[in-house]
Design a protein around this nucleic acid. Structure first.
Length: 562
RNA sequence: GGCCCGUUGGUCAAGCGGCUAAGACACCGCCCUUUCACGGCGGUAACGGGAGUUCGAUUCUCCCACGGGUCACCA
């Protein structure tokens, strides 16, 4: 077959050569060791937690090494494309600290535009570039056109659609494919001309030179050394619309754009042989690869499964809605990404995670289970370090969107809200009771009459008359200007008169010797004032609430008891 | 089913031929404490199984089991 002629027949419109293209994409001038990484999403949906993972690695590696992080949109599948998805992707990533130096970025008008010298960064706009390399491959006899229609292929792969495939089906299918491949390869120039004359669409397939029983030795930066079988499948390079498949676009773009490290999920490992083959065919230097373990979830049977779109915690918007702050999510991601991160964090409690020396060697090879409990713990620590003003503002902002009734209460008086969140904040041992912004209402909602709802009654064992007497006495003696000590001394004294000891040690040693303790007295008052058995420091609560409201609530309790 | 990857406590994990097998989360107990939270102390809990290499295997090799991923004109 005259491959030179075939190339011209197939791609008459392509006049450039690969060398011309190469000249348009000169190597990057970067310092030694600088890494060029990328995020290359297909605009088919939202950002997935599993996607944030490799992306964070790419971001850290690039920016930590003085390199470049760029974004390339892999919109090679028009059928699946979701309008606006790319824009949303970029915005979400930005929230989680991933910002791009180059590529398809968001302009001031909110639309996507290119920045950088290696564009266009949308693959759908790079058709001629791919075709130039495709033409070259045809010329060299490394690729050929295939006129098999989608329907025919469908028929061939029909068995594949069924979940419960039997052994024999797989074998039969593989056999059928091999036969089909040979048939396709045997296409003659006459047949090609006839098809072309008839206007038949075709795909361009690679002419695979691999033997599956031969292995390629390969080193993945995360997975280490491995042996993978050579590729013998004539996979598609260009689809019938002239747009490349992922495999082809990956090789061409990552080469031209100067990617040094390809960071992606381990689900790509099985097609690695294809990529290696392509880089070799095209004469490109292969980048370094990092295949990152997947995040898993537990299914009904208790087995691990890849975290999928529909799972709670997959969509990054879930975290926003649940009230997790991005800093906490990033922090959690870092703990999963590098096993020594938590240790570093303990030694550097106030540094940004960006100061952490990210280390590829400290990455896990196996997939981990998503753990909300751990996220919550991480989040509590993150929030406990924020000042009251920040917490108040962010809780308010969150509530305004997801819990408007509560949000409006908070927004009404910002300094009041700030005072609420200042309780127990700061100092060496700050309260850690907020894992999410949504936790604020159950903890602090009682400050607002709208959400003040005494949630339980006094336990049976307490004498109603005692409670009544204590509350009444407290009302009589309460002085807003007392300091905490004086305030508490009064409470102790009130209790003691009725046989409620202020000496907790004595009480614990022999509870039967007393009617109760000052803990019980405090509880009576706390329940009346906050409506809850558990609340932040009662003295602070009263100071913030103000004398009138404190007395009102206690009086309300008193009359409710009658 | 083929191929590839993986397997240390409930979870995340350190370990890289010799250790009483770290640490964190969760859980339990104690202490601190007017409740809760915080903090402190302590506890329960692990090398999937079998061969081999070796004086010695969690660590190296092989086999098995289990789990995951993948087998498109999707990425």
């Amino acid at each position: 077959m005259d491959t030179q002629r075939l190339a011209e027949l197939l791609f008459p419109q392509i006049t450039k050569t690969p060398a011309d293209i190469e000249a348009e994409f000169p190597p990057r001038a970067l310092p030694e060791g600088a890494k060029v990484t990328r995020f290359a999403p297909s605009p088919t949906g939202f950002v997935h937690f599993g996607g944030l993972f490799p992306t964070t690695v790419a971001e850290r590696l690039a920016h930590q090494s003085g390199g470049v992080l760029y974004l390339r949109i892999e919109d090679t599948d028009a059928k699946r494309e979701v309008p606006g998805a790319a824009e949303a992707l970029i915005r979400t990533l930005s929230v989680y600290g991933v910002n791009f130096d180059e590529g398809a970025i968001l302009g001031e008008d909110g639309a996507i535009c290119d920045r950088g010298a290696y564009g266009p960064y949308k693959q759908s706009l790079r058709g001629p570039i791919y075709q130039t390399f495709a033409k070259q491959l045809v010329r060299e006899g490394k690729a050929y056109p295939c006129f098999t229609t989608e329907e025919e292929l469908e028929e061939l792969h029909q068995v594949n659609k069924k979940e419960e495939l039997k052994n024999t089906d797989w074998e039969a299918q593989a056999e059928a494919r091999r036969a089909e491949m040979l048939r396709r390869r045997a296409i003659t120039m006459e047949e090609v001309e006839a098809h072309l004359a008839a206007g038949d669409p075709f795909v361009l397939r690679i002419l695979a030179d691999g033997a599956p029983d031969k292995k390629i030795r390969f080193t993945d930066l995360v997975k280490g050394n491995m042996e993978i079988p050579e590729n013998d499948e004539d996979f598609v390079l260009l689809k019938s619309d002239g747009i490349p498949t992922y495999h082809f676009a990956h090789a061409v773009d990552d080469h031209l754009m100067g990617t040094t490290h390809v960071i992606r999920g381990e689900e790509w490992l099985p097609s690695l042989a294809k990529h290696l083959q392509l880089f070799r065919y095209l004469g490109f230097k292969t980048p370094k690869y990092m295949h990152i373990a997947q995040i898993m979830r537990l299914d009904e049977e208790g087995n691990k499964k890849k975290l999928s779109k529909r799972d709670m915690g997959a969509n990054m918007d879930d975290y926003t809605r649940l009230g997790y702050c991005p800093e906490a999510v990033c922090e959690y991601v870092m703990t999963l990404l590098n096993s020594n991160y938590e240790e570093w964090r303990m030694q550097n409690p106030d540094k940004s995670y960006r100061d952490f020396p990210f280390n590829i060697k400290k990455m896990s090879v196996s997939g981990c289970l998503f753990d909300f409990q751990k996220l919550n713990d991480v989040s509590k620590n993150v929030i406990s370090k924020m000042d009251a003003k920040t917490v108040a503002e962010r809780v308010t902002a969150w509530a305004l969107e997801f819990d408007p009734d509560f949000g409006k209460c908070l927004a009404k008086d910002a300094s009041f809200a700030e005072a609420i969140f200042a309780i127990g904040r700061g100092g060496k041992k700050p309260r850690k009771d907020l894992a999410t912004w949504a936790d604020a209402k159950p903890y602090m909602g009682f400050f607002y009459d709208e959400f003040f709802a005494p949630e339980c009654d006094y336990a049976e064992q307490y004498d109603r008359a005692d409670i009544h007497a204590i509350l009444t006495a407290f009302c009589e003696q309460y002085d807003e200007n007392d300091d905490m000590n004086a305030w508490f001394e009064k409470i102790k004294a009130i209790g003691q008169e009725l046989g409620y000891t202020p000496d907790m040690k004595a009480y614990k040693a022999d509870p039967a010797a007393f009617r109760g303790s000052v803990a019980d007295v405090s509880m009576f008052i706390r329940l009346a004032v906050t409506g809850k058995l558990n609340a932040p420091d009662l003295y602070s609560v009263m100071q913030i609430l103000g004398k009138q409201k404190v007395l009102d609530r206690i009086h309300a309790m008193l009359s409710a008891m009658n």
